[in-house]
Design a protein around this nucleic acid. Structure first.
Length: 216
DNA sequence: ATCCCGAGGG
DNA sequence: CCCTCTGGAT
């Protein structure tokens, strides 16, 4: 059973909150539309790079309709440095076109509606629901969350959907959004992909990886 | 070389 | 399950 696992997860959460009291969404945005665009841009690309692009982008395109009518080539050039720019430009324009034409210019606030937008998967939908609408419909599973959850023994799964389900089963729902931000903060600073700095980690005693891979 | 808050398609 | 799409930072 997962009774012990739940307690462990809650303790991990408690200590991470102490260590990263300011953990939050690091993508710059002022409204759901901007977060939608920024999140599409963030695929396989750091938030810092997305944040370098968005000021000019949001100055040039101010509404879903603006994005929907964007010249594809111009949009591509503006987001070039985020990588996958052709797909992303197409997805931004297509998603905003649906928002403009089918949702009256407002980004929808349900999982089902968000998933119906082209270029929006579970991950992007969770980011928007959690950070714009205060909803915990699921847990954002990015590469950090996936890697750390496995290292800590909170899941053994590899597929993001399965990892998400495992995490949802052991974490209090009201903490789902914060949990992602905390693990991402930990992943960027300490629990990195190649050389995790276990001695600096606030939860090495609760982590399978730290216990069997003692550093130095 | 490896990694970055992915999604869609085969 | 696999693959592709892309560029910049380290």
């Amino acid at each position: 059973m997962s009774g012990g696992l739940k307690k462990r997860a809650v303790e991990i959460l408690r200590r991470l909150k102490q260590r990263f009291p300011d953990a939050r969404c690091t993508l710059d945005h002022r409204n759901p539309l901007q977060l939608l665009v920024a999140t599409i841009l963030s695929a396989q690309c750091t938030d810092e790079r997305v944040n370098k692009i968005t000021p000019a982008l949001f100055g040039r395109y101010r509404s879903a309709e603006d994005f929907a009518q964007a010249d594809l080539h111009e949009l591509e050039q503006m987001i070039r440095s985020a990588g996958f720019y052709r797909n992303k430009a197409k997805n931004i324009r297509a998603a905003c076109s649906v928002v403009a034409n089918h949702y009256g210019g407002r980004v929808p606030d349900t999982m089902e509606e968000l998933l119906s937008l082209p270029g929006v998967g579970r991950k992007t939908a969770n980011v928007i629901l959690g950070n714009c609408f205060g909803k915990n419909e699921g847990i954002v599973v990015d590469t950090h969350v996936a890697r750390i959850s496995r290292r800590m023994g909170l899941t053994r799964a590899n597929v993001p959907e399965k990892i998400e389900r495992d995490l949802m089963a052991i974490l209090p729902r009201e903490e789902w959004t914060l949990f992602s931000h905390l693990l991402i903060a930990l992943g960027r600073s300490i629990c990195k992909a190649n050389r995790p700095d276990c001695p600096s980690c606030p939860v090495p005693d609760l982590c399978d990886y730290a216990r069997k891979e003692p550093v130095d």
